[in-house]
Every structure is written in structure tokens, then in C-alpha cells.
Amino acid sequence: MKKIMNCILLVSITLIQTMYMDLRFSYDIGKEVHLLLVYVYGGLFSVKEATSFLVVLEYSASLFIQLIMLSDIMHRDFETACVYLFTRNESRTKWFAGKEILTFVFSLLILVSQMGVTVLVGSFKGYHLDFSKTVQVFLMLLLTLGLGSSIFNVLAAVFSIRNNGAVVISTILVVFIMSILLIPLMGGAKAFCEINPVCRTFLLHHSIINSIEEIDPFNRLDLITTAVYFIGLHVLILTGGCIWINRKDVMEVM
């Protein structure tokens, strides 16, 4: 029941957000479905428009909701039944890695369903569908979401063992959201974003918003570089999480 409610919630939010973005940016989007997708999911960093809280928030809403939902899956296990789960597994690392992979699959399913809604709305409103570009956008967003959920999961696991889970998760979320809102406001933020491979993807997306004609966001090299960075970071975070969970004394504080 909860899962069905979550699906309805996600689809409704996507529907509203898609309609809103269409209304707000339909002139810039130029009736391309993949650009509408970028508007709906693409950004956490908006250099030129970052001065507006609302703008950053509206770009990030879907991603935040997904991250909260995904980190909640891991957090719930750690906070409640971790002892009964761990003692049934031969290896904590195996359990942790399995959970991460499962979360990534959830990311994929959530993103597919949300993008389906956006594409449907786009088609209904007469947008042009370029399949290959849409798939490229999908891959970028999936990597972004996968990385985000990994970071959230590892943090959720580490902190919910040692502290009051609900408080800590809320704190992480607030810090995360505040950093998204504050980093672009700081001097030199653009340079920081450009050298940071994670932010670069977002910049790439926002370049579309700022000057659609000047930059080709679908450069194959850019996509591969971004994918390598994202997957590399993902592996790093997962490895760090596995090393931590395998520490001998980690169960003592449960």
C-alpha cells in the first residue's frame, strides 16, 4: 500500500512539475522532449539563476524526493532490524553491497516511471521526441541519481547506527539542500562547478537553459567523461561504505 502511495505521489509530483516547467520555459525548450526532461530533472546547480531560491528548488525537487525515498530504504533497515538482518548474513559487506545494488535498481525504476510521465506529457503537448538524445539525458540523470543515492545510503547507514537516525537524516538533508542553494551564491562558484566533474554535468544541463544555441550538450565525449567520473565516484563511495561496515566493532554500538 505504501509503495502504491509512493508511486502515486511521484507520478503526481512529476506531472505537476512537468506542466509547470512547460509553462515557465516553453519558449526556451523549443518543444523538444529531451530538453523538457532536463528542465524537470536536470539541475542542482544553476550558476546564472542561482540567486533565486525558488529556481534552484524547482530544478531539484524530483531529485530530492527520489533521494529521500531511496535513502529511507537503507535507513529503515539500519534503524530497526539491523541486528536480526546482520546476524542472518554470512557477511555484512555482501549485505551492504546487495542493498546498494538494489537501491540502484530502484533508482532506475523510479526514473523510468517519472520520465515516462514527462515524455507522455511532452507528446501530449506536441513536443518533438528525439529518441537518442532522450536516452542520453536518461543516462546522465540515472548516473546522477545513482551517485546521489549512494552518498545518501552510506551516510544514512553510518549515522543511523551511531545516532538518532531521524535527526541525523534530517540534518544531512538540510545540509545537502543548503549547500546546493549556497554554493552557487559564493564567489568563484562557477569555477568550482566547472572543475568538479559532478557539478559539470549540472552545468552542462544549465548551459542548455542559459544559451541553447552555443553549447552542444550531447557531445559524446562529454557523456563518456561524465559517466566515467560518476561510476568512479560511485565505486569509491561503495568501497568506503563496505570497508566501514566490515569494521569489527561496528555492531557494538547497535
Binding site: 505504501k2 529503515r76 533497515d77 530497526t80 532490524a81 539491523c82 541486528v83 536480526y84 546482520f86 546476524t87 554470512e90 557477511s91 555484512r92 547497535m254
Partner: peptide, 20 residues
């Protein structure tokens, strides 16, 4: 040789289950 006993049933105080 092992992290936990292979075949064990355990109840611990203050460890709960999934609330929903």
C-alpha cells in the same frame, strides 16, 4: 572463523522490526 554463529535465533532488547 566467523562473524556470527551460523545457526542462531536471537532476541535483543530494544531491537524492533519495520514499523510499517
Amino acid at each position: 572463523d566467523a562473524s556470527f554463529p551460523e545457526s542462531m535465533g536471537l532476541t535483543i532488547e530494544n531491537v524492533g522490526f519495520w514499523p510499517n
